[in-house]
Write a protein that binds this DNA or RNA. Structure first.
Length: 731
DNA sequence: AGCGACGTATAC
DNA sequence: TATACGTCGCTA
């Protein structure tokens, strides 16, 4: 006998496997003899008492000697395409950037669901003699099955208006037989030539520009189109271009609620609906869709932010629709902003990225101004329509009377709209009847016992509700503090109170409130939207809910009841958010008839948000926001990380925070604030200090933190350190 | 992330 | 004294 090859005599091959758990480092496993494994292969390995799925990250020729006797074997290699090198780089990059354990980022790419056996649906066919006893239900059923063809069991029962047990009875008697239904044929792929769009010259130019970008290579385009300019149809041309090349397209959407009509528009252009990916898929659909994504049989995927990290077979384009939307921020588990990580994925995979918005985020606007992103403008509404004309109503000069919230000028315009048989929308981003209830006798204010926020009066539900934590009490009849009767007054407006006022101003008008807490189900919502679309409502009173989707064809007037709401708090993004929200709400007006009007009730008509909206001057608004950021040091680019130190007593926490600051490595690019600048908070009896770190995007913040914390004194049991990042300010 | 170990508050 | 729940540390 020949001697064995040296390979089998020497120690077995060892690979590092990244596991989808909260671990930053890959674990080493032995490769069973005779098995070939490459980096990227998806494997199953033992971890503690269980089996987990992981990904071979790298070969490990010299594993840690301390592990030699503890190494376990890889159990099996799964029958899945290996993770491509660019996706593995993305996982490493994102983990490092977001300060999240690499395993948690990997977890987002392996959301494959349960790949159980495919369910076979039962079919039923008429094969035997008629039954002895013929009931009406059986007769209807036999009429339907008279053709002798195979029918779906559930469908046949439904068509006959009987329960499936009627079929079971006939099967027992030998009249019918059950056969498995053949699997429905896979839907045809989206057809780039299904319907050619009818573009204006402007849209055609934008589409051509995007098609050029889609030709390949990493580049970011900002499709900068006002509401109603047909952005979606324009970027569909880039999608078509990539489909013709046989590559996959990912279209990210801020939330799933929007996708219903989006899917229809997609089908109108490409003949079929695209594949969906979001958190509410059933496990089986998830598994099916995951397989179609990994093997490339799904050419187009429309998904929420979690769709970004999936292992596409050959991704050729990423579109981020409504790129400014806050829903792209993920704030639990790994903290990231999907729009920015989409740009990163595009850059690593060398594919183009399209960001679309009518009101781009300041970050994206700055990138476009600096030429890092290519701007593709679409400045006019489709079909020669005009943007709504916007006027401010200065509440200091022409406000409504005490306890009223609709200014006379706005009320007058609503009256005209109703006379013209058009609709009006009153927008107020505040649920319930009134944000505050107080006792006229003793001044008692109703606040939440848990979080100190005011309790919001909900007359419809007859409760006072905390909008922070959900705590609620029945609406009291008398003051619990001084026992006075009939002394409680509602302060400030909510949508329910606004409806009351609208009804008293226009007794003949039909009003409807659209507010998330008054909508029990998607069906209710749909039927209410139908009522509006059919013109059975004159005045719509709505919260944030009305800002998105759904066209109201007869809506030509939008009144923003409190345009200043949301500008008050200390949020550095308040102005930007308000601008985006109000732009979107007012954009609801005049979409069909092209003569919309918007009114902004405000106490500060000189505020940049109001001026920009009234003058339709976005550029001036961005200039003021960029200037504000430079002045305050709130970065348009870079990360805001915080190191949270908490302890049971104040001296321990503060002492440790000061020690840490003294030990911080010196890097002029990283600004460290605190603990004096970031005051202490007491949460659940623990004292918390937040040290803020501002770092430009190109600094290795994670390496900096590693060095820093390695130098810090060992944290004892009562002290806790957490690292947190603000994903909104990435890139 | 799971999972067991341990500790403390709480029920019986 | 038994049990529930919270927090910590480990997984190769």
């Amino acid at each position: 006998m020949q001697t064995q090859p040296s390979r089998s005599i020497s120690s077995p091959r060892v690979v590092d496997v990244l596991l989808p758990v909260a671990l930053d480092h890959a674990y080493s496993y032995r490769v069973p003899a005779g098995r070939e494994l490459q980096p990227g292969d998806v494997v199953s390995v033992p971890l503690g008492a269980r089996e987990v799925i992981g990904v071979v990250w790298a070969d490990n020729p010299n594993p840690d000697p301390r592990l030699h006797n503890r190494l376990k074997d890889i159990s099996e290699k799964l029958d899945l395409p290996p993770l491509r090198p660019e996706l593995r780089s993305l996982v490493d990059w994102v983990a490092n950037y977001t300060l999240a354990p690499r395993g948690m980022v990997l977890r987002m790419t392996l959301r494959m669901g349960e790949l159980g056996p495919e369910r076979v649906r039962p079919g039923v066919r008429l094969t035997g003699p008629a039954p002895r006893r013929l009931t009406p239900a059986r007769r209807r059923l036999l009429d339907i099955l008279a053709d002798g063809l195979l029918h779906g069991k559930a469908e046949a029962a439904q068509e006959a208006g009987c329960s499936p047990s009627v079929i079971d009875g006939l099967v027992d008697e030998g009249t019918l037989t059950v056969e498995p239904l053949p699997r429905p044929p896979a839907p045809p792929p989206p057809d780039p030539a299904f319907a050619q769009p009818d573009f204006s010259p402007e849209q055609r130019a934008a589409a051509d520009q995007l098609r050029g970008l889609a030709a390949g290579g990493f580049q970011v385009a900002l499709l900068d189109g006002v509401t109603g300019s047909g952005k979606t149809e324009v970027y569909f041309e880039a999608v078509a271009e990539v489909l013709r090349r046989g590559e996959q397209v990912l279209i990210l959407m801020p939330e799933i609620a929007l996708t219903g009509q989006f899917l229809d528009r997609f089908a109108a252009r490409f003949g079929v609906r695209p594949l969906e990916w979001h958190s509410e898929l059933t496990p089986r659909t998830r598994a099916r869709n995951f397989a179609a994504i990994t093997d490339g049989t799904a050419p187009v995927v429309v998904g929420a932010r979690s769709a970004l990290f999936l292992p596409y077979a050959r991704l050729g384009l990423i579109v981020v629709d409504e790129e400014h939307d806050q829903a792209y921020k993920q704030e639990d588990g790994a903290h990231y902003h999907a729009r920015d990580m989409a740009v990163v994925r595009g850059s690593i995979a060398k594919i183009p990225v399209v960001l679309a918005s009518a009101t781009p985020s300041v970050e994206t606007e700055v990138n476009a101004r600096k030429g890092r992103y290519q701007r593709v403008p679409l400045p006019n509404r489709f079909g020669g329509q005009h943007m709504p004309q916007i006027e401010a109503i200065d509440l200091r000069q022409e406000g409504p009377g005490r306890g009223r919230f609709i200014a006379p000028r706005l009320a007058e315009q609503i009256g005209f709209a109703i006379e013209r048989r058009e609709q009006a929308l009153l927008f107020l981003n505040r649920r319930g009847y009134a944000p505050l209830t107080l006792c006229r006798a003793c001044g008692h204010r109703f606040a939440c016992t848990i979080c100190d926020a005011w309790l919001v009066d909900h007359r419809f539900r007859q409760r006072l509700v905390c909008h922070h934590c959900g705590f609620s009490i029945p609406r009291p009849q008398s003051c619990p503090h001084c026992a006075a009767e009939n002394s409680l007054v509602a302060v400030g407006p909510g949508v329910e109170r606004l409806q009351e006022e609208a009804a008293s101003l226009f007794p003949q008008a039909r009003t409807m409130v659209l507010s998330s807490d008054l909508i029990s189900s998607i069906e209710t919502m749909r039927s209410e939207l139908n009522e509006i679309a059919e013109g059975r409502v004159d005045i719509i009173i709505g919260t944030q809910l009305v800002a998105k989707g759904h066209n109201f064809p007869r809506l030509n007037l939008v009144g923003v009841v409190d345009a200043d709401l949301g500008l008050g708090n200390g949020d550095p993004r308040a102005a930007e958010r308000t601008f985006q929200l109000l732009n979107q709400v007012i954009g609801r007006a005049g979409r069909e008839q092209g003569r919309g009007v918007g009114f902004l009730q405000t106490h500060q008509p000189e505020h940049p948000v109001m001026k920009a909206l009234v003058a339709c001057d976005r550029a001036a608004f961005y200039a003021s926001e960029i200037e504000m950021r430079e002045r305050t040091g709130y970065p348009p680019f870079g990360r805001l990380a915080s190191l949270i130190i908490s302890a049971g007593d104040r001296p321990t926490a503060e002492g440790f925070a000061r020690k840490l600051v003294a030990l911080a490595p010196i890097d002029e690019r990283i600004k460290l604030l605190g603990p004096a600048e970031a005051p202490l908070a007491v949460i659940k009896g623990r004292y918390r200090f937040r040290l803020l770190l501002k770092a430009p995007r190109n600094v290795d913040l994670s390496g900096y933190l590693r060095h820093w914390l390695a130098a810090a004194p060992k944290v004892s049991g009562t002290l806790k350190l957490e690292v947190d990042v603000d994903p909104q300010s990435f890139l």
